[in-house]
Amino acid sequence: MSTSGEPSQPYGLPQPNPYGQVPAPPQNPVPAQQNPYAQPHPVPGQPDPAAGQPTPSQPPMQPPSQPPGGNYGYPPVGVGAPGTPAGPAGAPGGNGSGGGRGASGWLWAIGGAVAASAIWGSLLFATGGFSSEPSPDLAGYSYTDDLCAATSMTPFENAHYKTKANTGSSSKDANPQHSAARQKSMDTMWCNVALEQENASSATYSSTWLYTSATLHRTADPAPEFADNYRAYEKQETSIGYKVESVPGIGDEAYLVTRNDLGSDSGSYVILGVRDGWMTFQSTWSSYASSSSSGKQPTSDEIATMLKTSATETLKRLQNAR
């Protein structure tokens, strides 16, 4: 609240009087030396009466319920930030107690803070700062509806494995099989390939599968839970044992899971999991061969090398699939 004779705006810019015309001065004004609110010196920013310049009329005291005049407490556009809210007692424009000028300054400070909050909130809404939707880091990977076409089979072919011939008559018996789905929270892709060794005898039984999947996470970062998903294999309280080890050099993190109770002669079960940003990838080798099988089964280490080589090339293809 301002006292009579003080500027209603801290930068000396005259503001329109919201209460109409200024009332006429009294017939017997109080002499300046007896008026405790008289200004002994010109107010900064206001015309100096002593210099012969006209003094603009000042608005009357405003009730406390009204905000400071002009722009709800903000200075006009182009004017610098307000100064300190209250001057020392006895300073020009003060009433000797520091209350009048200080109250006006605090109103300016509060009004400025409220207006600043409103402007900042508007900017956040306009730029999506208040949006609950996260910004997924997909690391350049993109969706494909045929993951089998992007899966590198070269390492397995070099180990004398080939895609098993399709003997079924329906699409459900197709080999390889692929599927994909685009959803709001994630994009998911799968590829299942049945393999067989070259020159394998039809008189022996063997089964070899390569399962590949890729997921683009759009609403939740998979990083906090990724490692635990694979470390959990080691904590299973069953007769089946697994070994889990970290694999450097692929994505942001990768883990290799190997089942221990399968001998190289009877089969292997090996999983490679990779996370790169908000993309997760998994390639699984599952094989079994009867004791009469003539073909030599690859070791778990050989399978791990094939999976890592295939994953490295497959991920490159998914990044260039745009």
Rank of each mutant, 00 (worst) to 15 (best):
N192I: 11
S294L: 04
D137L: 08
A24C: 02
N166K: 14
M61L: 10
V30L: 15
V193C: 01
P92T: 15
G78S: 03
S135N: 07
G99I: 15
Y74Q: 14
S201A: 13
Q66G: 00
S97C: 07
V270I: 03
A38P: 02
G73R: 08
L13A: 02
I119K: 02
Y288Q: 11
A50S: 12
M61T: 10
G78Y: 02
N199E: 08
E245Y: 02
A139W: 07
S290N: 14
E253Y: 14
G87P: 15
Q21P: 10
E133W: 07
R322M: 06
V274P: 00
P248E: 10
T305P: 00
A139D: 10
T314A: 04
S294F: 05
T144A: 08
Q53D: 03
V247Y: 04
L272W: 03
S292N: 14
A139H: 03
Q319R: 13
S2Y: 06
A103F: 11
E253H: 01
Y211F: 13
L272P: 01
P59T: 07
L195M: 14
A289T: 09
G295D: 04
P75S: 05
S292Y: 12
G273R: 05
V79M: 09
Q53E: 15
G87Q: 12
R101F: 02
G70I: 11
S201C: 06
P64I: 09
Y255R: 10
G80H: 11
D137T: 02
D137W: 02
P44L: 01
A115V: 03
G128T: 03
G69L: 15
P224I: 09
V257C: 06
W278L: 02
S131G: 13
T299Y: 02
S4A: 15
D48Q: 00
R101M: 05
H217K: 11
A227D: 07
V77A: 09
R218A: 01
A311T: 08
P224M: 05
A118H: 07
G100S: 15
N35V: 03
